[in-house]
């Protein structure tokens, strides 16, 4: 029990002593067991006021400070929670953005790869077309050259054989009569050509 409680109980006991009345018949009459005595109310009221004042005077600031600190702590926790929530939201947004960027990058890389592949295929086709055209042209030239070479060789061979045949035939056919005829023809032609 606190000091104030002891004071109040003491006041009440004193007040009770005063209101015990014994009548002539010996009957004892006491104050109402429900309502306190007036003095008790007064002393109790005073004590209560003193207690409340003391509580207000000495305990109020501490309670107030404690409540303020608690409020501040709760506010800080709320702020931290809000900050965490905002951070989480920001992070979630960043993750979503990163995910979106990754999707975009993937799409861009795929598009680049497709474009490069198409370019490589197109270049390859063009190069192959050029090479095929070159090979065809070279083949045509080679064929023409081979035809010309074979033709030349054939003509040379024919000429060689013809020359040999001409020498053989002419030499074999030059008898004395032919020699004389050639000489006479020459003399006649020179004499007539003056």
């Amino acid at each position: 029990m606190s000091v104030l409680g002891i004071i109040a109980t003491a006041g009440r006991l004193i007040s009770a002593e005063e209101h015990v009345v014994t009548d002539a018949d010996g009957y004892v009459t006491t104050h109402s067991w429900i309502l306190p005595e007036t003095a008790e109310i007064i002393w109790g009221g005073l004590a209560s006021l003193i207690i409340f004042w003391a509580l207000f005077k000495f305990g109020g600031p501490a309670i107030k400070k404690s409540m303020a600190a608690r409020t501040e702590r709760i506010q800080k926790e709320l702020d931290a929670a809000a900050a965490d929530t905002a951070s989480a939201a920001t992070e979630a947004a960043q993750i979503r953005q990163a995910k979106g960027d990754i999707e975009g990058e993937r799409a861009r890389l795929l598009a680049d790869a497709k474009a490069q592949a198409a370019s490589v295929i197109e270049d390859g086709r063009a190069r192959l077309a050029v090479e095929v055209a070159d090979l065809e042209a070279k083949a045509v030239v080679d064929i023409a050259s081979a035809q010309g070479r074979v033709g030349d060789e054939l003509r040379a061979e024919i000429a060689r054989l013809s020359s040999a045949a001409v020498d053989h035939v002419v030499t074999g056919s030059l008898d004395d009569a032919t020699h004389q005829e050639l000489i006479e023809n020459f003399i006649t032609r020179v004499g007539a050509g003056s």
Partner: peptide
């Protein structure tokens, strides 16, 4: 010439060359 010329041929050839 491939064969020798007679004197007559030489004479006629000489005359033909003179003329030519």
């Amino acid at each position: 010439t491939a064969i020798a010329l007679t004197d007559d041929q030489q004479a006629r050839l000489g005359a033909a060359l003179v003329k030519a």
